[in-house]
């Protein structure tokens, strides 16, 4: 490999004195690298300009579809600092926010939808790293359905006096979701109430 290149370099040196000036220059490697970085940065900028609108639109569509999964008839939303307001025909129909729980295998992200009377409309698990087949049952309707209509003081496991039944074999995951929802709910209700005034 090295030999080839040396032979190659020698050939260049013989062939012209002009290229010798360029390739033999001590700073040539640095200049060449700078040019490459410059070209690559410009190229990436161009691609970013081409895709930016589409990426933002996709993110917007993702939020809409998450909201639609909770409020089926929502047609518009307004992003607030750390929650969303869902609208239908310009009327507020509810609020939604993300709660983060510490599960068995890592972080669990939960999307929580609230009615205007601050009871839970529905929850959806956005992402989790729980044990497949056990902890991942938190994503099923049989578990998340239990949250429907609850106000925040009822959101705890039934053994702790709440109204949520833990999944057999996945108590930690169930508790993580329940506790995260309750904690976030308590905070967000205060925030939303003070914003509405």
């Amino acid at each position: 490999m090295n030999e080839n290149r040396q032979i190659h370099d020698k050939k260049i040196k013989k062939s012209s004195s002009c290229s010798e000036k360029i390739f033999g220059n001590r700073f040539y490697p640095l200049i060449f690298l700078t040019i490459i970085v410059f070209v690559s940065v410009s190229l990436v900028m161009v691609v970013n300009n081409m895709t930016r609108v589409k990426i933002l639109a996709e993110k917007d569509a993702a939020i809409i579809s998450q909201l639609k999964a909770i409020f089926t008839d929502t047609d518009d939303y307004e992003p607030k600092k750390d929650y969303y307001i869902a609208y239908r025909d310009k009327q507020v129909i509810g609020f939604a926010f993300v709660a983060k729980g510490k599960g068995y295998g890592g972080e669990i992200n939960i999307f929580v939808g609230l009615n205007t009377d601050f009871t839970i409309e529905q929850i959806k698990i956005l992402s989790n790293t729980e044990t497949p087949g056990l902890g991942t049952k938190i994503t099923e309707d049989s578990f998340t359905g239990q949250f429907k209509g609850l106000s925040f003081k009822d959101v705890s496991l039934s053994k702790d006096g709440g109204k949520i039944d833990a999944i057999t074999g996945a108590t930690i995951s169930s508790k993580a979701v329940t506790d995260a929802v309750r904690k976030e709910l308590e905070e967000k209700i205060e925030v939303i109430k003070s914003d509405m005034k």
Binding site: D82, K100, K102, G105, G106
Partner: peptide, 19 residues
């Protein structure tokens, strides 16, 4: 927005749980 995870949680998590 910072993730609220405590330093101990991050450390133990990285060493053994999410190795």
């Amino acid at each position: 927005m910072n993730s609220g995870a405590s330093l101990i949680t991050i450390f133990v998590g990285m060493v053994i749980i999410n190795n």
